[in-house]
Design a protein around this nucleic acid. Structure first.
Lengths: 336, 336
DNA sequence: AGCAAAAATGCAAGCGTTTCAAGAAAAAAG
DNA sequence: CTTTTTTCTTGAAACGCTTGCATTTTTGCT
């Protein structure tokens, strides 16, 4: 009930007021069992009365743990990534971790820079989402000496832990649907092929399934662009002149663009042109016709990544470096 | 070039190695001008050689500034909020602040809890996005003793600083378009009316403009729901039976739902039914027909909020408590 | 009641910076 | 070449907490 509001109340204020040592207060704050119930009660009472809140910065300095993890994300506004982020955040708060969210714009320079400020802030771990894991980044990760996991991304060199689906197989399975309807000229539309997930994995799935069905691979059916809706929207003329009868698209926004571009130009979907996409974000149900899509557990990829990270931060042994989550395919109006 | 990799390099390592005191190292790290150029150079060289990175936690404890701000957001996956977040993040990193992102689910309990952990982490300021600023929250804000600004939200009691548009006028102007086409029965579709932005501001705009045009207010045209796409989609039967010829919708996802629900049921848009929405997020251009919308500078609202916050954290005096950004209206295919 | 073992508590040394009063060095002035 | 000023640099005390170790109190047994 004292009203000298000025001085912030610290652990020592509480200690004095309760007539115990700081160590004891620290113990009750941290739920250490070695405290006599009566003492605990007394301390708790004072904490409550003084409205004491431990200073997390000081705790972090003393204990060398900040209960904070860094999350590097190419773009918060992208549904794919924000869905992952959602899963990450939920699990993080479940385990009492906070998240420092850092936008990288998918820009290599920024990724490096942001990584460094996260390290300076002494985060206990990092979740990285990105299109392309460069050697430099991999090197910096190694120097970091804290656990890092990739969410919804893959490390070609398999050096850093990651959570994702099997992109090669997922694409094979999705495109085989298209082939089964008799499509011979199927376009492959994606962001930069320099991003391994496109140029390496998805493209491989595409080629595999073509080969398996005796269709020759035609490079003129591969359309490399960026991840923007608009880029898909303007693609129709090119698609049409390549005589594509269907398209597999590697990103939902991009796919929505392709779909709308085609429809706006008068193409009948799915009769004259089919399109399927990759991420099954809520966008797929908002467009008309709705987009058939590879399904992948976006929220879970985020959640599992974070769970994985907590285990690593806890130094629990784990046998696997990579977690493959299940994928599927859902047929909607945009394909036959 | 010493290779005793074990011990982390701290300011004192650098000091010894460079033959100066910690204080001096601290000065060069912080760009304090009171350092002889020769000394600065020498220290910088050592810093570089030892690859020293200041520990932000220790800095935070000593300086009582963490260069971190908390951002409370109802849902990262919602385009409206993630657009604001984008603006916030950009300006934050421009001013060297990091962001601790905390999801609140728009849940009051969580908002309070999250606020407390942010305070424990000693953030220098907070940006709050939320649907409803309760008295309890307002009280906690006051206790916090750090600057807080509301982004894209309003404080009915005008006690906490905020950045937004004039929702009443924006709605008036948008709906007057509908009235000009002869619509007499215009539905008002929004999330919970208990959220002031709906029940207070937007609804007031709706009533105002009706009154101004001599149309009687009919409560049966007010549809209160939540912010989900699906909720809009299933609304059509109710809309139809209320004989609404147009709808003003308070959220883009919701509006996309209303639009698709109507179309899927065979309504001709905009001939038989018009719909306009409120946030002009990219969703509005992805649906067909595209959604006419109130325009508001989402990114800017976030950016300006953050800028505002930096000024407050700097204790720069500011005359205004509230910043009104300009709004507009863009006509697209969903209205005549 | 007496004693060893177990349980509680306290002491104080960190954790890695910043910062301020004070001293040392350099520059300017006489 | 002194004496003043001005510019740099240093030492050491915070900042608010955790934690290993020592000490004290309790408990359980004889």
């Amino acid at each position: 009930m004292d009203s000298r509001e000025e001085k912030a109340v610290t652990i020592s204020t509480v200690a004095k007021e309760a007539g115990v040592s700081m160590a004891t207060v620290s113990r009750v704050v941290n739920g250490n069992p070695n405290v006599k119930p009566a003492t605990r009660k007394k301390v708790l009472e004072v904490i409550d009365r003084l409205d004491y809140r431990p200073n997390a910065v000081a705790q972090g300095l003393a204990s060398k743990k900040t209960t904070t993890v860094g999350v590097i994300i190419p773009a918060v506004t992208n549904v794919y990534f924000s869905s992952l982020a959602r899963g990450i955040d939920d699990v993080a708060s479940m385990y009492k971790y906070n998240i420092i969210l850092a936008n990288s714009d998918g820009n290599h320079q920024k990724e490096i820079q942001v990584l460094n400020t996260l390290l300076a802030k002494q985060v206990d771990g990092i979740i990285f989402m990105g299109h392309n894991l460069t050697d430099e980044l991999r090197a910096q990760f190694k120097r970091a000496k804290i656990p890092i996991v990739l969410a919804g991304s893959v490390d070609q060199k398999d050096e850093v832990e990651s959570v994702h689906i099997n992109y090669v197989e997922a694409v094979e399975s999705a495109i085989s649907n298209l082939i089964n309807h008799g499509n011979k000229r199927i376009a492959f539309v994606s962001g930069p092929l320099s991003d391994p997930i496109n140029g390496e994995y998805r493209l491989k799935g595409y080629k595999n399934v073509l080969a398996k069905n005796g269709i020759e691979y035609d490079p003129s059916l591969v359309f490399e662009t960026d991840y923007r809706y608009r880029s898909g929207e303007v693609l129709w003329p090119a698609l049409a002149s390549a005589r594509a009868t269907a398209a597999f698209v590697a990103d939902d926004e991009l796919a929505a663009g392709v779909l709308n571009g085609a429809r706006d130009a008068g193409a009948k979907i799915p009769d004259e042109f089919e399109v399927i996409t990759s991420n099954n974000s809520k966008l797929t149900e908002i467009v008309r016709p709705q987009l058939s899509s590879i399904t992948q557990p976006l929220y879970d990829i985020g959640a599992v990544s974070m769970r994985f990270l907590t285990k690593m931060m806890n130094k629990e042994e784990s046998t696997q470096k990579t977690i493959d989550l299940p994928y599927g395919f859902i047929k909607r109006g945009s394909s036959k």
